[in-house]
Write a protein that binds this DNA or RNA. Structure first.
Lengths: 328, 328
DNA sequence: CTGAAAGCGCTTACAG
DNA sequence: CTGAAAGCGCTTACAG
């Protein structure tokens, strides 16, 4: 039950491997190969259930039609959905994905990047946890096709797709004010240096009516539950009356903690960055700043493919998409 | 900035490619290659930033260290978490993953399977939407390494990992009874033929005190919201007082719909198969039948690897893991 | 209109 | 202790 190769088809038909290869790659007409011969080849390929060996092909062509994807955590709904969007677009364009998680561990991220390159991916889509572009400068120096998503770096001439986080955060704070909130707190998350988080903090600061009343709480990414509980304790006696959560994980922990304490969500106005299903399920519902996740994924894939097909001419672009306030 | 190859190392050191290959693959000692020569080779490989071409290697060896994973929908938390578990175990064992979604579309599933095999994956982990084993009989006939997860087929001698769905559903119903529920309804989902769903229905039936009072509602998988709304309308005037949801998607839709109607969850006792975060966030919390997702993923990967390393001796196993009642 | 040949980068018997 | 050679399966100039 050995797999059929080009040679098997060629021999059984009495033609050359070259001819078979040409026909099967759709270059039969272009090379003026006899229609009947072409049909015979295709027929036989079907008959032998021929499956081209992509590794021989990749070796020869120098490309593998595989894109690497590295995200912090695919079981986080935001990244799960992003990966799904990337997968759909990649699948449509004939590319496969290799997906890996870093869990915000920069050592693992370094290892994953080199592992993936070892696997000869054609390009990489990266939601990085690095604190500076230095860590990936090496990649771009060697001209390796890279697209940053979600988290980007300043002054870095590499393809990227992100959202206007500052603007989104502003919209969130303005929404709180419009609902009568007097003093909004920001529940932020470590590592605070990733661009998406730091920009959202900046948006919060910018939108405050009275910057002196800014209140920023740092929630550690590896103990969100505990961090939120501590924050609530700490704020017990302060006159905060609204919370802006910089991401959905914090908002989820907050909802849970409030309900455990018997405090209704009605008492505290909450809004979150990232719109997830839960916000529409809990009672009362939670408003959110939604990211165009599908478009982020699609754009990232297409930037990469453009780079592949256009090695010389491709100019790195920093795409910034808008967020939407989902009012509930 | 060309990538270094074995040949580059060999030439710059005045040794053969064979020697370099042996050393770099850790067979230097076994083949009695001079320690100093070995050190020189490793040194030079580092210096040239040598990355072996996996496709040349794969072509030569016949293996690619890549596992295909096909699930219905990775943005569904259950499958997202399963993929994460699979990824972790695979990563530890030196395998890469190619993940794809079927969205319950059997045509897409067929195409994906052949696509992945075209990409020369070493083996496949499959949560299938097929209604019978016939669709994949071909795969196993050719002896292709396959592990079914979550959804399995009867009388099919292939590796698989699933949970005791019947038993889990019984536990759910018994829990409802213990909480004073008199007449539990089962919210089931199409396609109902997948084993996980049909077994949960069977568990529900088996556990009913009065089988005549069985009430099974079919929710279409592509319109869960609407299906749940209709179901609630239909049940308006019946004396049901508890709901068993066969999966988390249905439970989420139910929670949302109840809260939209202003009915508290307290009025209707709900329990769901699959334990997800939301159940711990809503108020009141929802009890659930939890699957050992991490163990499912890990077991699947290891069955596959055992099959790889043990081509002849490997005996297909049907692993069935236990569920846990998470009472809230 | 078609074929023979080279070569992608690697590993592995084989030979000495 | 090390090297020369074959070959994995494919594609692509080149030649006729």
């Amino acid at each position: 039950m050995k797999k059929a190769s080009l040679k098997d088809i060629a021999e059984s038909l009495g033609v050359s491997k070259a001819l078979v290869s040409l026909v099967l790659n759709g270059k039969g007409d272009e090379r003026g190969i006899n229609k009947q011969t072409q049909e015979k080849v295709r027929q036989k390929a079907r008959e032998l259930n021929y499956i081209p060996n992509q590794y021989a092909r990749g070796l020869r062509i120098g490309r593998t039609n595989t894109i690497g994807v590295i995200v912090p955590d695919i079981s986080n709904v935001f990244y799960g959905t992003l990966c799904k969007a990337i997968e759909q677009e990649a699948y449509d364009k004939g590319y496969n994905l290799i997906i890996s998680n870093t869990y915000e561990d920069v050592q693992k991220e370094k290892k994953l990047i080199s592992d993936l390159i070892n696997r000869n991916i054609d390009g990489l889509i990266l939601a990085s946890s690095f604190d500076s572009k230095n860590e990936i400068q090496g990649l771009t120096d060697t001209n390796f096709p890279l697209v940053l998503v979600d988290r980007v770096f300043d002054d870095f001439d590499v393809d990227s797709v992100s959202v206007s986080n500052i603007d989104g955060a502003k919209k969130a704070i303005e929404f709180l004010y419009s609902k009568g909130v007097k003093r909004p707190v920001c529940f932020s998350m470590s590592p605070v240096y990733v661009s998406s988080i730091s920009e959202r903090i900046k948006g919060y600061m910018d939108a405050l009516k009275d910057p002196n009343k800014a209140k920023l709480v740092q929630i550690p990414h590896d103990d969100i539950e505990g961090g939120v509980a501590n924050a609530l304790d700490e704020l017990q006696n302060e006159d905060y009356d609204g919370v802006f959560c910089v991401n959905n994980n914090i908002a989820k922990a907050l909802i849970r903690e409030l309900s455990m304490r018997g405090e209704s969500l009605d008492q505290v106005r909450v809004i979150s960055f990232d719109d997830i299903e839960v916000f529409d399920i809990v009672n009362p519902k939670i408003s959110a700043i939604a990211q165009p996740i599908h478009e982020i994924g699609k754009t990232a894939v297409n930037l990469l493919i453009d780079r592949f097909n256009n090695e010389e001419g491709h100019k790195p672009q920093q795409v910034v998409l808008d967020t939407v306030l989902v009012e509930r």
